[in-house]
């Protein structure tokens, strides 16, 4: 660990631009930072580049060769592009828009998927412990402890999404990326996930993409507002919501677009 680990900022995004086609920027010159053990919400109307920005943090764009990325992102002071992508994704977990447990794996196997996928072998007792801990952390343990060896597909959408959170945190990442994690869920399941994120904040730093303003207001510490690929405004969530500096932010918050 170098001295920057003392820094409050886990992530530093520096002049990041991402283009799906040459010249067409989905994210344009974004500079921002994310504080340790906090929830940072990225908001904006659909197509503003918020998911694109999020997916740059664990280098997901490298799966699609046409996407071009410029600029830099520092994780604990180190450029993510200088790390091995395996190491990076071990430190940065991700939860997706729609619950996506692996349909070919049991609940148990899903939780330890990070270990099996990365070919990390360990004793059964240690694995059991990890599974129980992760499932307790997402408050799913009591609901599924009797059916650990069944496929995860019979669970409800909300349970599946909590299973996916468990899968991500079982690997003990530093940062958890959440890409509209509740957009496919009903209000009650959404509330459970939101409560859960509030709990998880003690251990993990979270970046949350949402198009739901009230969700951002309810659970985030810091907020960013993006529009047409640009970061329009960022700051403490309370400040941003009550006294937005940019007229576009104000228009969005008052429901003028999006």
């Amino acid at each position: 660990m170098n001295n920057t680990s003392q820094n409050d900022n886990v992530l530093e995004i520096k002049d990041l631009s991402i283009a799906y086609e040459p010249g067409k920027y989905a994210v344009n010159g974004v500079t921002a930072s994310v504080k340790r053990n906090s929830i940072t919400a990225i908001m904006g109307p659909s197509g503003c580049g918020k998911s694109t920005l999020l997916r740059a943090i664990n280098r997901m764009h490298e799966l699609y060769p046409d996407i071009q990325t410029k600029g830099d992102i520092l994780l604990d002071g180190q450029s993510i592009f200088s790390m091995s992508v395996i190491e990076l994704r071990r430190k940065v977990g991700m939860v997706f828009q729609r619950p996506n447990p692996f349909p070919n794996m049991t609940i148990y196997e899903n939780v330890v998927a990070g270990f099996s996928l990365n070919d990390i072998r360990m004793k059964k007792s240690r694995r059991d412990e990890i599974v129980e801990n992760a499932l307790r952390n997402v408050t799913l343990w009591d609901e599924v402890k009797e059916s650990l060896y069944r496929k995860g597909t019979f669970l409800s959408g909300g349970q599946q999404q909590r299973l996916c959170v468990a899968r991500a945190i079982a690997f003990n990442p530093e940062v958890l990326l959440l890409d509209e994690p509740t957009s496919a869920l009903d209000p009650i399941a959404t509330l459970k996930i939101e409560d859960l994120l509030g709990e998880l904040k003690k251990k993990y730093t979270m970046v949350l993409v949402t198009h739901n303003m009230s969700q951002a207001a309810r659970i985030s510490d810091d907020s960013m507002f993006m529009y047409l690929g640009e970061l329009v405004e960022s700051g403490r969530t309370g400040t941003l919501f009550t006294t937005p500096k940019d007229p576009r932010t104000e228009a969005y918050l008052t429901g003028k677009f999006g």
Binding site: I86, R90, F115, N118, D119, I120, R121, N172
Partner: peptide
Amino acid sequence: MTEINTALTDNIGRRNR
């Protein structure tokens, strides 16, 4: 969870190959 880090540094090279 340093066990993960150790295991990964051990196997990253092999897996990439």
